[in-house]
Amino acid sequence: MMKPTRRQFLRQTAVTTGALALGPLAAGGQEAAGTPPDMSIARWAGADEAPIADIAVKLTERAMEAIGGMKRFVKSGDVVWVKPNIAWDRTPEQAANTNPDVVKTLVRLCYEAGAKTVKVGDNTCNEAAKSYPNSGIESAAKEVGAEIVYLDRRRFREMEIGGPALKTIPVYPEIIESDLVINVPVVKHHSATTVTLCMKNYMGVVENRRKFHQDLPGTIRDITAFMKPRLCVLDAVRILTANGPTGGDLADVKQVNLVAAGVDIVGLDALGCEVLGHQPEKIGTVVAGFEAGLGQIDYRNKLSLRELEVA
């Protein structure tokens, strides 16, 4: 084994010390300090009445920390695209879009890890000019220096997807040209796919997607394979349990206080299904992703997993 440099030594010491300090909190910690896990799940164990913004920030920070920190994914000078779900002209309380504090924290962590530019944008369903501000994401991300990108419909480029369901589709070039895309969806019910999670969130990088609905599992599988996911963060601080994907009735929203991060998109989606009370084996998109080799449904046994309680 090579002798570690001083920087590596210091970093490893810090990580080890951190892991030891957090050890008692980690429920299923089976990984060694040197090899970060494939997936982390952070659950809130603090006071119920804590401000939801604080909960979102802490859960995101700790979930990212547990999979090895943002530096595992972001190199100094990188351009990062954070891809939340900002599809709908809804407020954060309605849980139709990703939690703005989760997005904000990710942007901050990217900059702390040395990113040059962090861009935030989505191909929205409602007008972006309404969804971006109403979701709270625009102002939250701007606060920490993100560049908010309003996608220009004329700038999509037809790209080779080469899947069984999707041959070519217009994709937004600026997203593909980024060094890293962080996929950060909110956990929601969806009338067509039952759930909408990480894989379905990639529908926000393409155009001409209305026809996807004739074969959602197939098209979503193909676009996911094309995107080669490296980091996904699942926001289940608030979830939408019915009348999705738009919601609108606060009675359909549930505060679950969970954030998960991982490199295995199918595993995260399987977790999302369970959060919504579904068996992942029965959800078309998840099964299609698993069968195409995009990840593991049985994330508990097939992935190195780290679960933590955050207070």
């Binding site: 009338s191 609905h213 004739q214 074969d215 738009t246 919601g247 359909d252």
Partner: peptide
Amino acid sequence: RECIVCEEHCPLPKK
């Protein structure tokens, strides 16, 4: 064929 994009977009809390 499956579709229901219209239902997906319907903004009413009870669609």
